[in-house]
């Protein structure tokens, strides 16, 4: 069984900057928008190459979204970044109307997913961005789980019409994929098992894989699926996972509205299956290290193991 215990050699933010430079070099229509968090996501390093196609509007997120919409009207493909809480919650009406409802093409990167906002604390800790984006019609919603995937999703967002939202952490992720990997179906099955299935996204994929190893040592054989495309959800993957008879979802996000909800909606309508959602339950963010926050909110491999065993013993 493949081991997943090495970190990517590049940070997710570097992948963002490098991929944008690659796309912008190929296509003069690519523009990059920032709202004074350029240093945080490292697009400062591509500023000189992009010249006037790098636009830092200042601390004006609403204007950033509106200007991106206008740039799309004028024929450009905007890539917009800020922290996920600002990229969704703070500018929800602008994203909803000026981009989505107006049916304009743009990619939004929301960084510092969930507990990885760490010491920025509750004001900056997004546990609801996926929910907010998922209920906007026709938006594609992803959560990237490693560097190879993030580069691929950015390119997918570049290619596809309409609005794409990509959630990511800023720093290094656990390496899950070879650089040759393709991301086409909306999910990746990383491990096949028969007793239960863990459907995870983002940082929780590595946690799910670690949980699967522990469970294997206790003769519980589980599947692990990286559900990186939160919307539209890969229904086939959910249905296949339901064949095991027990599903645990795991997300660094509120259990309401995100991956857990998306999976539950498919199951409730097509194949009612016992399930448990690992995620944030009725809690705001707070300061702390990511490791401590994961423990505090119940987002560790131990929590996943417990949930699987509980479902399997029912």
């Amino acid at each position: 069984m493949k081991r997943y215990n090495e970190k990517d050699t590049v940070e997710m933010r570097q992948v963002y900057a490098d991929t944008l430079l690659e796309l912008a070099t190929l296509d003069p229509k690519v523009v990059v928008l920032e709202a004074d968090l350029s240093s945080a996501i490292t697009t400062t390093k591509i500023k000189n190459q992009l010249k006037d196609r790098y636009v830092n509007v200042g601390i004006m997120e609403a204007e950033m979204i509106g200007a991106a919409a206008g740039l799309a009207v004028a024929g450009f493909k905007p890539f917009i970044h800020t922290f996920a809480n600002f990229a969704t919650r703070r500018v929800y009406d602008q994203v909803f109307l000026s981009l989505a409802y107006a049916k304009l093409d743009a990619v939004i990167l929301g960084s510092d997913a969930g507990v990885t906002a760490e010491h920025n604390g509750g004001t900056h800790m997004p546990f609801e961005d996926l929910s907010l984006m998922r209920i906007i019609p026709e938006v594609t919603v992803y959560e990237a789980s490693d560097a190879t995937m993030l580069a691929a999703l950015l390119k997918q967002g570049y290619k596809q019409p309409g609005l794409t939202y990509i959630r990511t952490i800023r720093k290094q992720a656990i390496t899950l994929y070879d650089t040759s990997e393709l991301f086409e179906t909306g999910s990746k099955t990383l491990r096949k098992g028969t007793d239960a299935a863990i459907l995870a996204s983002g940082i929780m994929v590595a946690e799910a894989l670690a949980a699967a190893e522990e469970l294997a040592a206790q003769d519980i054989d589980v599947s692990v699926v990286d559900m990186y495309q939160i919307k539209p959800i890969d229904e086939d993957a959910v249905m296949e996972a339901a064949e095991t008879g027990a599903i645990v979802t795991a997300e660094n996000h509120n259990v309401i509205g995100g991956l857990g909800s998306a999976v539950a909606e498919v199951l409730a309508e097509k194949k009612p299956t016992k399930m448990y959602r690992i995620g944030i339950r009725e809690k705001f963010g707070q300061v702390g290290t990511a490791d401590w926050l994961k423990q505090d909110y119940g987002l560790t491999k131990i929590d996943i193991v417990k949930a699987v065993k509980h479902l399997c013993s029912e």
């Binding site: 523009v31 006037d52 979204i65 509106g66 200007a67 919409a69 740039l71 009207v73 004028a74």
Partner: peptide, 14 residues
Amino acid sequence: ISAATGIALGNRLA
């Protein structure tokens, strides 16, 4: 008006 700023900027970029 925000969209208009983006349109004007885009036109100048082009």
